[in-house]
Amino acid sequence: MDNRIDVLREEIKQKLSSVGDLAELDKLRVGYLGKKGSITALLKGMKDLTNEERKTFGAEVNKLKANAAELIDKKVEELNRRAIEAEIKLMPVFDVTTPPELTRGSYHPVTLSQRQCEAVFKSMGFTVEDYAEVVTDYECFEAVNIPKHHPARDMQDTYYLENGQLLKTQTSAAQNAILRKYGKNLVENGVPIKAIFPGRCFRNEATDACHENTFFQMEGMMVDKDISISNLIYFMKTMLSEVFRRDIKVRLRPGFFPFVEPGFELDINCEICGGEGCPSCKHSGWLELCPCGMIHPNVLREGGVDPEKYTGFAFGLGLTRLAMMKYGVKDIRDLNSGNLKALSQFTDDDN
């Protein structure tokens, strides 16, 4: 038996010297140290030995086992080191003295527009809130005065999930949560609710130069005592003049939105064609930018705010369309195309 231990010890050393990869090494390990391995098999013959012989022989087998495991671990380290060295040799050589490329990327035009709007509204005391893209039917519709089976739902074909939730069609889905979050401070401390909440929206609709199934909006709302339409117009014109860095021609026309009363469409003179008419503005010279109006009493009430004491305005600014006007993008589909050649041209001195 002792002779067999010496034979296995030398055999393991010889085989380890010729092992070329980790897979082959693992087979060798199992062949000697596994449950049916050669070293394990030595222990099966111990039943024919005396107690004293078993004690001596068992100790020798354990030494062999420990020695084999140590040799295999060293071989693993050696093979890993070889693999790293081989990979390093394949790597291209870099000249550290070569000047770096000065070309750098830029933020997406929608991101630039969003950050500019956020900065403007922050300067006017608004907080910036974040909200989920996957919402409940209650959040997206019922909480903003669009009950089930209401015809207004036909205006927003929606992507529903199997669990009954949906991809929000409008940033208005956050209105109820914002009202409840800040309503207590409004009532107890008289602090107005002033918040904006930008986000990505989804609608299952045909795409063209000015419509996409995925787009960005920025909802905004202000609630306090004696808030009027004039407050809404002031804040919107201030924001647009700051973003475009000049006075922008706008128009306010009546529009129906269930969550505001009265409701308006705030249109901006098309910056792409200068108001002459093009595919981006459907040849009207105007681009619908911001559905807005005075928050409907039902929406205030649903958010825990007494409409007899407080009024407010809300707007849904189209960030994607705003970016089109600011950067002269003629087709809205370019913004979601992932075309680096088209998007890399946008930079901004303030970002």
Rank of each mutant, 00 (worst) to 15 (best):
N351A: 15
A23Y: 06
K36M: 12
R245V: 03
T40A: 13
G255P: 10
M221S: 03
D226H: 14
Y234M: 05
K15V: 01
N3P: 00
K309R: 10
M221C: 05
F244Q: 06
V135N: 10
P99T: 13
M239K: 05
L289A: 06
Q116K: 14
N298Y: 07
G318R: 00
K35Y: 05
E188H: 06
W286Q: 11
A132F: 07
R301C: 06
A86I: 01
N269W: 06
E53V: 11
K27P: 01
V191Q: 10
D26Q: 11
L317E: 02
D224I: 07
A66Q: 13
D247K: 09
I268Y: 03
Q175A: 05
D73W: 00
D267Y: 04
I268A: 14
V260A: 01
Q217D: 03
N336Q: 10
A69Q: 13
K225A: 10
G285M: 08
A173M: 02
D226T: 09
T127I: 05
D2Y: 09
K75F: 03
P262H: 06
K341N: 08
S172M: 00
A174T: 11
I272N: 06
R246Q: 15
Y310T: 02
E212N: 13
T238E: 12
F121Y: 08
N51P: 01
G255L: 08
L179I: 00
D306A: 07
L232N: 04
F257A: 00
L167I: 06
F315Y: 15
T158P: 00
I272G: 08
D21N: 15
R301T: 06
